[in-house]
C-alpha cells in the first residue's frame, strides 16, 4: 500500500463514520436513561421501549405501515416485472416513452408526489385512506423493482424463450415456466426493497393518509413535538425492519450475481 492509498482508506473510513454515526447514535441513545440525550451517558434503560410498547398510536401506525408495505411490495413488483419483461422482449413504437414513464417517479421529489396525489385522491374520494398511500407508494416503488428484475433478465439468453416456443410451449407458459423461475431471486429482492422503501416513506403518506397514520408519519408528528427518547426507540425499530429488508434484498442480488457465472 502506498502512502496515498493509506490516506485514501482513512478518508473512506471517515466518510463511513459520518454516514453511520447518526444510526449508531440513534440506537445508543434509545437505551439512555436520561430524558435529554447528551454526554456523558447516564445509564442503561428500557424505559423508552416500554413507553412505545404501551402506546396505541404506535401499534396502529405499525399495523398500517405493515399493510401498506406488503400491498406495495406485491403490486410494485408485479408492475416492475411487467415493465422489465417489456423492455427485455418487445420492440414497439414509443418504447422510449414507456421506459421513461416506468422509471421516472423516483426522480420527482416526494413532496411533489405527495401534494399531486393529495389533489388527485381528493377528487376520487380516496384522500385519507390507506389505499391512497398504497397507490402513491406503488408509483414510487415500481421503478426500483423494474431495475432489479431488468438486471437479472440481462443474463437470460434471448434465444431461450424462442427455443421453448419451437418446442410447443405458448408464450405465457414460457414466461411462467422459464422466465419467472429464472427471475425468482430478483423478484424476491424487489419485494424486499420495495417493502423497505414503502415502510420508510413518510412524505407521500403524510399528505394522503389523513388520520390513518403510518409509522413514519407518526414519527414525523412526534418530531414536531418535544425531543423524547421515545423517538429513538421507535426510530430504532423502524430502522431494524428496513435494514433487515434491505440486507435481504442485497443478499438475493448477490446470490444471483454469483449464479450467473454458472448459467
Amino acid at each position: 500500500m502506498t502512502r496515498g492509498d493509506k490516506i485514501l482508506s482513512v478518508y473512506l473510513a471517515a466518510i463511513f463514520v459520518f454516514i453511520l454515526a447518526p444510526i449508531v447514535t440513534l440506537i445508543v441513545f434509545s437505551f439512555n436513561a436520561d430524558r435529554f440525550p447528551s454526554l456523558p451517558w447516564s445509564g442503561f434503560s428500557l424505559e423508552w421501549y416500554e413507553a412505545i410498547a404501551s402506546d396505541s398510536t404506535i401499534h396502529t401506525g405499525f399495523k398500517n405501515s405493515l399493510i401498506v408495505a406488503v400491498a406495495t411490495a406485491v403490486i410494485s413488483t408485479i408492475l416492475g416485472f411487467c415493465a422489465a419483461y417489456t423492455d427485455y422482449r418487445f420492440k414497439f413504437f414509443g418504447k422510449m416513452g414507456f421506459l421513461a414513464l416506468a422509471a421516472m417517479p423516483p426522480t420527482v421529489p416526494v413532496v411533489i408526489l405527495g401534494i399531486a396525489n393529495l389533489t388527485f385522491m381528493a377528487q376520487i374520494n380516496l384522500a385519507g385512506t390507506l389505499q391512497a398511500v398504497i397507490l402513491g407508494h406503488t408509483v414510487y416503488c415500481a421503478p426500483f423493482a423494474m431495475a432489479l428484475i431488468r438486471i437479472r433478465l440481462a443474463d437470460l439468453d434471448p434465444d431461450i424463450e424462442p427455443a421453448a416456443w419451437n418446442l410447443g410451449a405458448t408464450r405465457m407458459t414460457t414466461v411462467r415456466q422459464v422466465v419467472l423461475p429464472f427471475c425468482r431471486p430478483a423478484i424476491f429482492s424487489a419485494m424486499a426493497i420495495t417493502a423497505a422503501v414503502s415502510f420508510d416513506e413518510f412524505m407521500i403518506a403524510w399528505f394522503v393518509s389523513g388520520i390513518n397514520e403510518t409509522l413514519p408519519v407518526r414519527i414525523l408528528a412526534m418530531l414536531q413535538g418535544q425531543v423524547s427518547p421515545r423517538i429513538n426507540a421507535v426510530g430504532s425499530l423502524v430502522f431494524l425492519v428496513t435494514i433487515t429488508l434491505v440486507l435481504i434484498a442485497q443478499a438475493a442480488v448477490y446470490s444471483f450475481r454469483k449464479t450467473r457465472r454458472n448459467v
Binding site: F16, I19, L20, A21, P22, I23, T25, L26, F29, P37, I193, A196, V197, D200, F202, P216, I219, L220, L223, V227, I231, N232, G235, S236, V238, F239, T242, I243, V246, L247, Q250
Partner: peptide, 20 residues
C-alpha cells in the same frame, strides 16, 4: 454499506443528527 443507508430511515437519521 453505501446502499443500505440510502434506503433506510432518513427521517430518524435526521432526528439523530438533531440531537448530535
Amino acid at each position: 454499506f453505501l446502499v443500505t443507508p440510502f434506503f433506510t430511515s432518513y427521517l430518524v437519521r435526521i432526528y439523530s443528527l438533531q440531537i448530535i
